[in-house]
Nucleic acid binder design. Structure first.
Lengths: 108, 108
DNA sequence: TGGCTATTTGCATGATTAGCCAAATATACA
DNA sequence: TGTATATTTGGCTAATCATGCAAATAGCCA
């Protein structure tokens, strides 16, 4: 009976992690963590691909609950709605570092 | 010049996050966090799909540096090589919770 | 109203992913 | 050596994803 709740929880987590799991979206998050809010045009410039692609990346982050948006005039501003991402990336980085070290050992 | 290093870092993070971003792999991690090590056959039973599929999921987690494996006899035992995943999931859960709350507000 | 800008959406395409079955590999054991 | 067990790998298919271009939408301003 708990099994279904667990299954649901795994699916929820996977959906959020999948939203994070793309280099461009991570870059967007990095940019957003530097300021209170950033418009799509500025984000497009930092990512360097088509604005329509950036818009879709942002839509994914929003659907996952990671960012929120507000339209003012013709522009749409996005901002992070999560505070714990830096520590999350800290964990990811520790995986990356130790994995690289292991590879170096293997290679040497 | 930093840009390339940054780009590399985003790609590394994305690769690790992508390895985490699947319900079955999250379930595998949960199972592994309960014990020191678990064999593929036991993991297959908890996941409930073909052993070949489980083996591939585990291979992905290993390639990302999240688990490691050791063969003893005919069996292969997997174990977590990362300690910070619970706090990482804590962050993910906080996203999930606040996003659900927002949806409830929208619905009401 | 008409034109201009910012953003999103429709559509098509190529790439990646998940899953299963069957076959290969490796180890144990009689 | 031959057989059984545990795991991985090859090959295939269906589904999902990323991307760009073009078109649609929405707001501003003359």
């Amino acid at each position: 009976m708990d099994a279904r709740i667990d299954q649901r929880r795994y699916e929820t987590r996977a959906r959020i992690l999948k939203a994070l799991a793309h280099p461009s979206r991570l870059k967007l998050i990095d940019k957003l963590s530097e300021r209170e809010e950033v418009c799509v045009c500025d984000l497009t410039e930092t990512i360097g691909c088509d604005m329509s692609t950036v818009s879709r990346h942002l839509a994914q982050l929003r659907a996952a609950g990671i960012v929120e948006s507000e339209k003012r005039g013709q522009m749409v501003f996005y901002r992070l709605r999560v505070k714990c991402l830096q520590s999350l990336f800290g964990c990811i980085e520790s995986v990356a570092r130790s994995h690289v070290e292991e590879h170096l050992v293997v290679l040497s």
